[in-house]
């Protein structure tokens, strides 16, 4: 790092003042989709950035980075949360599930092993651009785990933390209620 610093800064502006050190990286162990990984992270790295930039699990999306869109929804200890509003270092003892961990399939296997919600989202065309979709699906898994939604209106209200700019809401509600109907207990 320091090497590039010296070579690339214009010489006339080379700082006479001391360099500003930021909080150092430290080992942070995350358990994502059942796999423990030790990362070197500074405290300021959000769980979302840790997943996307440090673990390259880009299925979890960044749509606002402020808890205002739900695209970053993941499950922490089976509860849905916004990964943008927690620090990775705060999640060391938790079980994190991302969209990549929902289907038990490997890279090559067919779509038949998809999570029932993933299948339902495809069948009900519950997305267009697909960017909010992993967050919607993780949120829907959380919704089913919570068990508070009984009606389509409940689903609408309790899925309102996931914005879909393409406006696929009717498909999203249809997909979720179809899975609710077929699996009345937790998923």
């Amino acid at each position: 790092m320091n090497l590039t610093l010296g070579t690339l800064l214009p010489t006339n502006e080379s700082p006479s003042l001391p360099a500003i050190q930021t909080a150092t990286r430290q080992p942070v162990t995350l358990t994502v989709n059942g796999v423990k990984t030790e990362l070197q992270l500074a405290p300021w790295t959000s769980l979302l950035d840790a997943l996307r930039e440090y673990m390259h699990l880009t299925g979890t999306k960044k749509g606002c980075d402020h808890g205002q869109c739900g695209a970053c929804t993941v499950l922490v200890n089976n509860k849905r949360i916004n990964a943008c509003l927690t620090l990775a270092i705060m999640q060391e003892d938790t079980q994190i599930t991302t969209i990549e961990g929902l289907s038990s399939l490997d890279q090559t296997s067919s779509s038949s092993k998809l999570h029932p919600l993933q299948r339902a989202f495809i069948d009900h065309d519950a997305f267009q651009c697909g960017y909010c979709t992993p967050g919607q699906i993780c949120s829907a898994v959380g919704l089913l785990n919570e068990g508070h939604a009984k009606t389509a209106d409940d689903v609408r209200e309790l899925m309102s933390g996931n914005i879909c700019r393409c406006g696929a809401y009717p498909g999203i509600v249809a997909a979720i209620t179809s899975v609710m109907d077929s699996q009345p207990t937790t998923v």
């Binding site: 739900g70 849905r80 949360i81 919570e146 309102s160 996931n162």
Partner: peptide, 9 residues
């Protein structure tokens, strides 16, 4: 208030 995700946090 907020969303289900935020209320969980």
């Amino acid at each position: 208030g907020a969303s289900a995700q935020l209320r969980n946090m």
